[in-house]
């Protein structure tokens, strides 16, 4: 307790969890930026992505088989791609089913929340029905051994993969939003949808693209999460809340804020869970953090926009 190795281990754990939270948080923050809505069913996109990746990996790698390192990397890549694809499909369907009809009819904002909550309930029950209502372990392709030692903390191949993959995805998404044509239209719509339309941005298309982008990230994150822990039909709720917490923490609508918020939340949970609370209450920390941030700075750490729209 308190040794350097311990702190490094906690930091590694926190970064792993934080990178996953950031992946989810990006979806929240992007959708909020474009539509000013909180997509309550985003956790279910995460869950469906996990199952997509899980079954892809099972198809590629029959249970019990041992793959080499290179093949392992390939398998994880396949899982990420499949998870991202499943997440994108889920997000697309979600946008079609729970958001677009309401947008057409000019629904009050709370209606979207209720609709997304219904979609979440639907997706969870459908997954529970089709995939069974218990935890499904994902056989990771890597043997459980230390490949790296950082400041006295041993890092398993799995954790390393998760962090690397998540960081790559996050950086790619950040660059996409910051530098590409699509990212420019996303930011334009986030700033002023009317003006963006007048300048030739296809708002509907941007909305769909935003959902898909968030879905890819969440789905891939879901697979990475399932690789670390397990997949289950109810796995989306808690990470979903935490992803949302991270997004609010960094300021809803702010992409870099979501990255920072996710990492910060992961680290806070990791350290707080060790030094302040026992493991059971670790999840409570996210709520406490969210509360505190909303009390002190309602628009988040880096956000300036969340409070403006009343």
């Amino acid at each position: 307790m308190g040794s350097g190795g311990q702190a490094a281990r906690l930091a590694v754990d926190g970064l792993t969890a934080g990178a996953l939270y950031a992946l989810i948080a990006l979806g929240y923050t992007l959708v909020y930026g474009v539509l000013r809505l909180v997509n309550l069913a985003h956790g279910e996109v995460f869950m469906l992505g996990a199952f997509g990746g899980l079954y892809a990996v099972r198809t590629v790698l029959p249970a019990g088989a041992d793959a080499g390192l290179l093949a392992g990397v390939g398998i994880v890549a396949a899982g990420i791609v499949a998870g991202g694809l499943a997440g994108a499909l889920a997000a697309l369907g979600l946008e079609r089913a729970a958001f677009r009809p309401l947008r057409r009819r000019g629904a009050p904002r709370l209606a979207y929340l209720a609709s997304a909550a219904g979609a979440s309930m639907f997706a969870v029950s459908l997954a529970g029905k089709e995939f069974g209502r218990r935890d499904v372990p994902v056989a990771g392709p890597f043997p459980d051994e230390t490949v790296l030692s950082v400041a006295g903390a041993s890092v398993s191949a799995e954790a390393l993969t998760v962090v690397l993959a998540a960081v790559c995805l996050l950086v790619a998404a950040e660059r996409l939003v910051a530098a590409s044509r699509l990212g420019r239209s996303i930011r334009a719509v986030a700033q002023d949808p009317e003006c963006a339309t007048l300048l030739g941005v296809d708002v509907e298309r941007v909305v769909v693209a935003t959902f898909v982008l968030g879905g890819v990230l969440a789905g891939a994150g879901g697979f990475l999460y399932a690789m670390t822990f397990h997949a289950s039909y109810a796995m989306g709720f808690v990470p979903g809340i935490k992803g949302c917490t991270a997004a609010v923490l960094g300021g809803l609508g702010n992409v870099r804020g979501a990255l920072a918020g996710g990492l910060l939340l992961g680290l806070a949970e990791s350290f707080g869970g060790h030094y302040l609370l026992t493991g059971t209450y670790q999840d409570a920390l996210a709520v406490a953090v969210l509360f505190t941030v909303l009390l002190v700075r309602p628009s988040g750490l880096l956000g300036d926009r969340a409070g403006r729209l009343a």
Binding site: P101, A111, A117, G118, M121, S125
Partner: peptide, 26 residues
């Protein structure tokens, strides 16, 4: 019993998509 939520979830979505303004206060 577990599948009930499928129908309830779908129902909420349908109702919200159908008459959002009437079901929620505006």
């Amino acid at each position: 019993a577990g599948d009930r939520f499928l129908y309830f979830g779908a129902l909420v979505m349908v109702l919200m998509a159908w008459r959002p303004a009437r079901l929620l206060p505006a």
